[in-house]
Amino acid sequence: MNIFRFSGDMTHLMSVLVLLLKIHTIKSCAGISLKTQELYALVFLARYLDIVTNFISLYNTIMKLIFLGSSFMIVWYIRRHRIVRRSYDKEHDTFRHLFLVLPCFILALLINERSAFKEIMWTFSLYLEAVAILPQLVLLQRTKNIDNLTGQYVFFLGAYRALYICNWIYRYFTEPHYVHWITWISGLVQTLLYADFFYYYFNSWKNNVKLQLPA
């Protein structure tokens, strides 16, 4: 495992921890899109179907368990926790799951590396992860004031994507036959979705003003 891959995993982990910390300590999920969180839970469920049959390393298995567990925990908090759920911004979080899930599933059926069930679900999870942040970005745009933790959550997620691209470039040059078009293209699309956010995030940080996305 190279440094980019490991740093990418760690920023991914940080994003989840920041979010859980916010929800757990402040007992608030203001500014967090339930739709995005539910899509992530679905992404991990579809991708880690092989968690018991395909052992890669202890690190991999533990990280998979963390991502699965935390994504369902976050969804549970927003939907079920009696205090947290009151802060959920239902009026602005109106993105329809199906608009993202259905096209991704059809695309996975059409474009995949191997048409086995697990392989199609894995491909579906890649496509869905690429666009799962959209409801969150839409919600951020509609929310006037983005609090620091929500901003950091999206920042860490974007950093994770950028580091994974560095990891693929590194692996391409250091490992023989390392070519994964589906992973790369969906990963690139996903990272580009953050570009706009990053621009405003750095600007607000540079000028030391509160993060606000233009409508």
Binding site: D9, R47, N54, I56, N60, F67, H177
Partner: peptide
């Protein structure tokens, strides 16, 4: 190439 489909990333 079977190894190609070994998804070792998260």
């Amino acid at each position: 190439d079977e190894g190609k489909l070994d998804h070792d990333e998260l």
